[in-house]
């Protein structure tokens, strides 16, 4: 079966685990097509092909550099694993960090919002995002979306790469409730357009809204790169974990080879 891994820079973790995927799923022929998020979001489908428009010089350059081609033809693929979209994550997580839910027990000095309003605001933001993706990809039941991973747990530490919103959100007792609202919105919005959805696997997370540090890119910490710390992108082990989750849930396939143990 031909499978395309399509996505933003977050799909790099899957590319990095390509050898393992080949060994663990010999029945699958997996190809990869990745673009930086900003290019990916403005790329289009022309016929059955996806990629940056010819006028997008930067996008074309990046696509050529990373994929060896400007565009990818989706027609040959039986399934498409779409990785790394953010699903209005910035706006939604700020809302979740900034507000208390009226019906929740937890109270802080934050403004209060009813559960109904929270669901409506988050639901509409996610829906609009998905609708915009549908405008590009159209009706395509082959596509399964998995969002970008939450930032690494180490991003809760102040300094370079500090994720203020995520850090505040992850500390909240209601994080699981918020997560349920957000991920439910992603699932239902995608289903409305005929797409499938997989949430970031729980075993890759620390708490609710953070990814375990063992999935950090190599040499991406403050100690390694100073101010250029990367707390958002993940490594090959993460790629293995999410591909396994995808293959199990969507293709009914278990790996023939165990995933590598993450290096801490």
């Amino acid at each position: 079966m031909k499978v395309l891994v399509l996505g933003t820079s977050h799909s790099a973790s899957l590319r990095m685990s390509a050898d393992w995927i080949k060994r663990a799923y010999p029945s699958l022929e997996v190809d990869y097509f990745s673009l930086p998020g900003i290019v990916h979001s403005r790329s289009l489908m022309i016929g059955s092909t996806f990629g940056p428009t010819p006028s997008d010089a930067y996008g074309c350059k990046m696509s050529q550099q990373w994929n060896g081609s400007l565009i990818v033809d989706l027609a040959p693929y039986a399934q498409i694993f779409h990785v790394g979209e953010r699903f209005a994550m910035g706006a939604v997580t700020r809302l979740m960090a900034d507000y208390d839910i009226l019906e929740h027990e937890e109270r802080s000095l934050r403004p209060v919002m009813s559960l109904s309003a929270a669901r409506a605001l988050i639901g509409s933001a996610v829906y609009d995002f998905v609708e915009a993706r549908h405008d590009v990809f159209g009706d395509d039941r082959r596509i399964t979306f998995m969002p970008a991973p939450y930032p690494l747990a180490r991003s809760a530490k102040r300094g370079p790469g500090f994720e203020n919103t995520m850090s505040r959100l992850n500390k909240r007792h209601t994080a699981a409730d918020w997560s349920q609202i957000y991920e439910h919105a992603m699932g239902t919005s995608l289903a409305d357009f005929g797409y499938r959805f997989i949430a970031q696997p729980m075993h890759t997370r620390q708490g609710i809204f953070a990814t375990q540090d063992i999935f950090a890119r190599p040499k991406s910490s403050v100690a390694d790169v100073g101010d250029k710390v990367d707390n958002r992108h993940t490594n090959a082990n993460y790629g293995q974990e999410i591909f396994a989750a995808y293959a199990q849930s969507q293709l009914g396939l278990a790996p023939l080879e165990m995933a590598s143990a993450p290096q801490s």
Partner: peptide, 14 residues
């Protein structure tokens, strides 16, 4: 969104 420079780097790594 994610830092564009990092996005480039991470894909080049991959």
């Amino acid at each position: 969104g994610d830092n564009a420079v990092q996005c480039e780097e991470v894909l080049l790594d991959a």
